[in-house]
């Protein structure tokens, strides 16, 4: 019985966090912060990337069209990374670490590189897994930026607020993800 209801425990926990976040601050979102990290690194090599002018409106602007969007919102986040959105996402690393420490069932070493479903199909060749995961990460963040949000921001936070964009996003995601997962991981023979 206890095991059967583990999904309910997870759902309640996640639901409470999503609700508390919008109640106290704003809806949860993650993928924007990948842009902020990129911008921080980019800024080290290019001093001209972000301009700051206290008397101008908007205060922060960028030579990059994307960072300049929405009145320099991303440019401002790159110039001042100690802000809610960025610290929130960094803290998620700590949350994942603490949860894995508290869990009785530890993640096995080989599961830390290739999940079982991957090994069943492609064997123990971890290099292949890492190459594919890198490309997967590229597609996921490229797609998330084009969509203007990811699973957290569009699907969870969006559908919670009955946003039409959340439903459109979920339709797009599952339209490719389900057939590709079925075909890509189809067992041999």
């Amino acid at each position: 019985m206890n095991k059967d209801l583990s999904w309910l425990k997870g759902g309640l926990l996640l639901g409470i966090v999503f609700l508390t976040a919008i109640w106290m601050v704003k809806p949860i979102g993650v993928s924007t912060q990948f842009v902020i990290v990129d911008g921080i690194v980019w800024k080290i090599f290019s001093k001209e990337l972000i301009q700051h002018n206290q008397n101008a409106e908007p205060e922060y602007s960028s030579t990059n069209a994307y960072l300049n969007k929405n009145n320099g919102k991303y440019a401002s986040g790159i110039a001042n990374p100690v802000n809610y959105g960025f610290i929130f996402v960094l803290s998620m690393i700590l949350g994942g670490f603490l949860s894995s420490r508290f869990s009785k069932k530890k993640i096995q070493q080989k599961d830390k590189i290739s999940p079982k479903v991957w090994r069943d199909k492609f064997g123990e060749n971890h290099n292949k897994r890492l190459v594919y995961t890198f490309v997967a990460g590229f597609l996921v963040l490229f797609g998330a930026r084009l969509a203007g949000g990811c699973t957290s921001g569009h699907m969870m936070s969006g559908m919670m607020q009955t946003s039409v964009s959340g439903y459109l996003f979920a339709t797009g995601v599952f339209a490719t993800a389900i057939p590709i997962a079925i075909i890509f991981f189809k067992p041999k023979k």
């Binding site: 594919y132 997967a136 597609l139 797609g143 969509a147 964009s165 995601v173 339209a175 490719t176």
Partner: peptide, 16 residues
């Protein structure tokens, strides 16, 4: 939003 979601879906399925 739909097209970006569909691109994300490819990586979501392969990477997990």
């Amino acid at each position: 939003v739909i097209i970006g979601g569909a691109i994300l879906g490819i990586g979501f399925a392969v990477g997990g």
